[in-house]
């Protein structure tokens, strides 16, 4: 009887410390999975698409609010209510002189009556230009700094002396309810992203558990032959990452397409405020990073799901 051909030299070379991960082909052999056969890559794709849309919406709202705040932060409106047209014009001119003398005023513009009539026409119709319907004179003022309560009080005091009855309003105050609504929408977008992240992690958890159950026999054999948790986990991680990468790319495509189409629809509104919500380069970079975050989330979830399952075995 000849000596059996043991892999003696190989055995002697076997490292005493934990062995490294199984290489690609060997790992694929052990846990064969038909590529993209299950629903998980598509579930991840839908989740990522929804996250992209929610994130784009949140970023657009953030831009819109930021631009509106910047535009209106130093804007003040002076309103002069006077029934007599001649007197009203005089008061407006006096107010403009007083304001020009203030060092905090960067520029001002007395709004022409025709412009006021045009602004009110949607509500008053032809009555907008009626002399019997007195309309207050308006002066748009741009301050050199933000219009805080101190600046408003200072202008009001300066006008009270020469133009009694003139009222100073910070434009940003009018939009405060709009800002609040936009903030709520931003929080809603964040909550949506958090929920989708949780749902995505749950889907990966279920998929990893299912894959583990399907290959439990193989895992047990690997364990008994000296396979480490790290080696076994990596095998499953590979397929989770592959599925998540596919889902992420498809989701990014779908989501970005939807955002682009929505952007075109909003651009057609030709509204100054909506134009402030246009996504910039940094926003698109953040959106492009979403699939990477999805892959990282899937990797971490998959890894811990398998590790927890393995720790229930000896």
């Amino acid at each position: 009887m000849s000596t059996p051909p043991f892999a003696t030299e190989l055995a002697d070379n076997t490292p005493a410390k934990a062995p490294g991960p199984l290489k690609g082909s060997a790992a694929a052999l052990l846990v064969p999975q038909a590529r993209l056969s299950g629903p998980i890559p598509w579930v991840i794709a839908i989740m990522i698409a929804l996250v992209v849309i929610a994130a784009a919406g949140g970023l657009a709202l953030n831009n819109l609010t930021g631009n509106a705040r910047a535009e209106l932060s130093g804007a003040v409106t002076i309103q002069i209510t006077e029934a007599n047209e001649t007197l009203r014009k005089q008061k407006a001119a006096t107010a403009a002189e007083v304001l020009t003398a203030q060092d905090i005023v960067a520029s001002l513009r007395v709004v022409p009556e025709e412009e006021l009539d045009e602004m009110l026409r949607p509500w008053l119709g032809d009555g907008a230009g009626n002399q019997d319907l007195p309309i207050p004179a308006l002066i748009d003022v741009q301050l050199s700094s933000a219009s805080g309560p101190q600046e408003i009080a200072r202008l009001q005091a300066a006008l009270d002396a020469d133009v009694p009855g003139a009222r100073v309003d910070a434009q940003s105050e009018w939009l405060q309810p709009v800002y609040s609504a936009l903030s709520s929408l931003q929080y809603l977008a964040l909550a949506l992203i958090a929920l989708l992240t949780f749902a995505c992690a749950a889907a990966v958890w279920l998929a990893a558990r299912s894959a583990f159950s399907n290959h439990k026999e193989t895992v047990e054999i690997m364990h008994l032959l000296g396979g480490t948790d790290a080696q076994i986990t990596r095998i499953f991680q590979r397929s989770v990452v592959r599925d998540a990468a596919f889902g992420g790319l498809v989701g990014l495509g779908l989501g970005a397409g939807a955002v682009w189409l929505l952007g075109r629809q909003f651009a057609a509104l030709d509204s100054g405020m909506v134009a402030g919500g246009v996504l910039g380069m940094s926003d698109w970079i953040i959106i492009a990073l979403i699939p990477l975050a999805g892959v990282a989330l899937a990797l971490i979830t998959g890894r811990y799901t398998i590790l927890i399952a393995l720790r229930r075995m000896l």
Binding site: A7, L10, A11, N13, T14, P15, P19, G20, L22, K23, S25, A26, L29, I221, M222, L225, G226, G227, Q231
Partner: peptide
């Protein structure tokens, strides 16, 4: 592949 499994788990090169 079954016979090679223990060697692969011990990180023996392919």
């Amino acid at each position: 592949d079954n016979v090679a499994l223990p060697l692969r788990l011990a990180s023996v090169p392919e």
